[in-house]
Design a protein around this nucleic acid. Structure first.
Lengths: 130, 130
DNA sequence: ATACTTGCAAAACATTTGCAGTGAG
DNA sequence: CTCACTGCAAATGTTTTGCAAGTAT
């Protein structure tokens, strides 16, 4: 997974241009505009490879299939920026939130060691609320 | 799904006695102690029915299969208590957290309507940290 | 030319559903 | 005695993998 193929470029372009997290099916639909024969297996293989290369990030939300977003989406750091997500109940789209209220250590009982936290907001995006 | 069968009781007992959220497979293993022939299909059917009866709650965590916990676990309200969860990376168990930092409205951009939020903490539970 | 990539089909999981037989009330 | 419930097998949706053919370098 290191050659620069049309398929790899199509997957990366779809994600880079989206500006939000996409499901593998959405990526398939978008990338097939460039490479009509594109297959879901190939999509998944490139999604893994692009994660290893830190070009994209996997976004897992409760009860949702995995989505993928451009690494460093919306910021200009070298390392992936810690952030959370908003899931619109109406259009089912997922948007990155560039804020974080802090470590949440205090929510855990005595003796529990908190190493990470994830916050998901749900509701209506600006478009659907209008 | 309204008769009081051995299967239904076995599923409910397993969840009520666990004190933490269980996966359907864990429930199967526990409930088969009472009803050896018990089947995963039956488990799932009762899980839906018990949710409708508000006896149990479905717990969805990012990247995890669904788990189920007793409704009102750990508190004494009539309505399901709003709470979050801790997922131990070592033993893969899920514990309820009886605290919540608030609505998180402020994390969303202008125009977004926040209707709900979910927080998942990950790390080591007291047992695994020791 | 060589070895990485691709597409397809089939396998893995979690969950749901059709159906015919079983059992609670 | 009925109709809901159960168990099994098959279907669904998402993700992974084996393999033979295709292609970038």
């Amino acid at each position: 997974m290191e050659r620069n193929t049309r398929q790899r470029q199509a997957v990366l372009d779809a994600i880079d241009r989206a500006g939000r997290a996409l499901t593998p099916s959405e990526i398939l639909a978008l990338a097939q505009a460039s490479v009509a024969s594109l297959n879901l297996s190939t999509i998944y293989r490139h999604l893994h490879a692009l994660q290893d290369d830190a070009r994209i990030t996997k976004v897992m939300l409760p009860g949702q299939a995995a989505r993928f977003e451009a690494a460093c989406a919306g910021d200009h750091h070298e390392v992936a920026h810690h952030h959370h997500h908003f899931h619109c109940s109406a259009c089912d789209r997922v948007y990155a939130l560039h804020a974080c209220p802090g470590s949440m250590q205090e929510l855990a009982p005595e003796g529990f060691v908190v190493r990470a936290h994830e916050i998901t907001l749900r509701g209506l995006c600006a478009e659907c609320a209008a």
